[in-house]
Design a protein around this nucleic acid. Structure first.
Lengths: 317, 317
DNA sequence: CCATATTATGCTCAAGGAGAGTATAAATGG
DNA sequence: CCATTTATACTCTCCTTGAGCATAATATGG
């Protein structure tokens, strides 16, 4: 153990490592959760890591703002990937990818030629349960996972596999848990049901859902899972909202991210009792039905809530 | 934006980056939360990053087991630090530190010459509230933070500073929140009240608590905060327990990590109703008072609970 | 003008969970 | 036997949460 803390004194070519940033930039535009993509919606924005800033956070912030013109509201580090074989070429220089989650608002005409906003459900069609469980689940995913489970040699493994599938995808009468987005992707990956794993290890059919370069879709799944967990106890949704909004718009944004519906009255109760918002005095125009009050996020509450906590109602049942 | 995704083709010396792993290895020995340290308890175990494994997780696992002989139960990535100026020398090769949290059991005679187990409250004496708020809080920390707040130029900033201090440290009648360990460290760092920041930016007095090399104490604080949050909804405590244990021993371990006490009866109620444990049939020997039943962790439940969730009672009041 | 659709908003209720307290049981050491 | 210590079983109350009912305010089509 005594040699563990010896730090390398020199950097040789053999040690060569490159690091880059990968960003999951999220916005919600009238009920659609979007992510910034490049390469014809086939990759997440990424770029070589620069040490020009005091911290990774600030580096990412500056980088995103320079590249996209979007100010970044909330930033959070997601995960650092350095798995061998990510590039496919064993002699390639080792690459570490540090991924971040960032929240913004979609703004018109800000994207570059290569950059665009894409709905994240294009990549994960099984994740949107706002209109009930998507047909693809029962029709395609469940049967294939069952086949995968049955393909195991030992009966014990068959059972374990199927139980895992049932838990993560809410099959066999189990509840759907929207926070398991990453586990679901990883399970499909392991079962060779998505192009990314088929590409690497060879396999047959894939499940619907747009693929991405490298492991970008895994990174996106990580971001979705993290954000879905976070909105339940931190007021991060507000970063995605315009300055003024109705409570229904706020609710729709939460639902868009969570991929499931929320009880309207209870949602309002929770929002109001936590004093997260205040009335602007104005009413929403151009709406169907009874006009709604406009609200704005209470800035004063931010400092406190950012540390402590907030609750949003997302039932598990 | 179109140049964002261009990956660097060659690695030049200018790009040189080194990566290393830093581990927060936690064990609990009869009520004392311990971490593995090296360099006379002045640093966390760390070492150059090897790409010899399929993933960072597995790399860390193999590395820790080789170095310490400890099998690693639970492993979780904490954070990747790459702040400029971490080494002090601006010409030094850039270093990225990927930190991990690992849970084990302390075992006799396994440590190397340089490695030892240290109580984590040696580094964060203000974090242990099992015997009520530590005296150091009211006597030393609160006054110094008040002075720091008052030292601000503008009255508004003074107020903001003090409010932040009060929230994170539970002052002014606010509740203590054990999960804010990282925020507390960062606040003290910012207020130049700990050796690490004084060392960097110059300052006066420091608050009690052992310092560590580099930003290791920040990493440790990150690990503590993460673990304290995690034990409330994932059954990770069991990784720290021996094969058989009494419910009180289990409770004491939770309390050691959380740094606060738990209502005994409610703790048992929650543990039992979740079917996390099963009786071994044996009773604890060599105890004072009425002998307690011995329990073991229900292995069967692991697969399910690892995905879903568990609750441990840690009141906020 | 009225019926209908659509959204906003206020209120109630029942079940479950969480925090806290009481009471009793089983051991040990004097 | 008594004090002490730990184990274990219940109970009670408050709060939260999920869910539904009822009503208000607007627009539209007939």
């Amino acid at each position: 153990m005594s040699n563990v803390n010896k730090r390398p004194k020199t950097v040789t070519a053999l040690d060569a490592i490159t690091a880059d940033l990968v960003a999951v930039l999220v916005a919600v535009t009238d009920g659609h959760p979007k992510i910034m993509t490049i390469e014809h919606a086939g990759a997440l924005p990424s770029g070589p890591f620069q040490f020009a800033h005091r911290s990774l956070q600030m580096g990412l912030r500056a980088w995103v703002e320079a590249q996209t013109g979007h100010p970044l509201g909330y930033v959070e580090q997601l995960y650092t990937f350095a798995d061998r074989g990510r590039s496919g070429d064993p002699d390639a220089p080792h690459r570490i990818s540090i991924s971040y989650l960032g929240l913004t608002r979609e703004e018109e005409g800000r994207e570059g030629a290569d950059a665009q906003w894409s709905s994240w459900y294009d990549y994960f069609p099984w994740e949107d349960h706002r209109d009930g469980p998507p047909a693809i689940l029962a029709k395609i995913i469940a049967p294939r996972l069952k086949a995968w489970a049955r393909a195991a040699e030992e009966p014990a493994l068959q059972k374990t596999r199927w139980r895992r599938a049932a838990i993560t995808f809410g099959l066999d009468g189990r509840e759907w848990n929207e926070e398991l987005a990453l586990q679901r992707y990883e399970l499909l990956y392991e079962a060779l049901l998505i192009p990314e794993s088929v590409r690497e290890q060879g396999g047959e059919a894939a499940v619907p859902g747009r693929a991405m370069a490298g492991d970008h879709r895994r990174i996106l799944a990580t971001g979705i899972a993290r954000l879905r967990a976070k909105i339940k106890y931190r007021p991060v949704v507000f970063e995605l909202m315009p300055d003024e909004f109705t409570l229904l718009q706020l609710q729709r944004s939460v639902e868009a991210l969570a991929g499931r519906l929320v009880h309207k009255q209870n949602f309002r109760r929770l929002i109001e009792q936590q004093e997260l918002v205040e009335e602007t005095g104005a009413m929403a125009a151009d709406t169907i039905g009874r006009p709604a009050k406009l609200f704005r996020f209470r800035q004063g509450i931010l400092a406190e809530r950012a540390v402590v906590g907030t609750k949003l109602p997302l039932s598990r049942s």
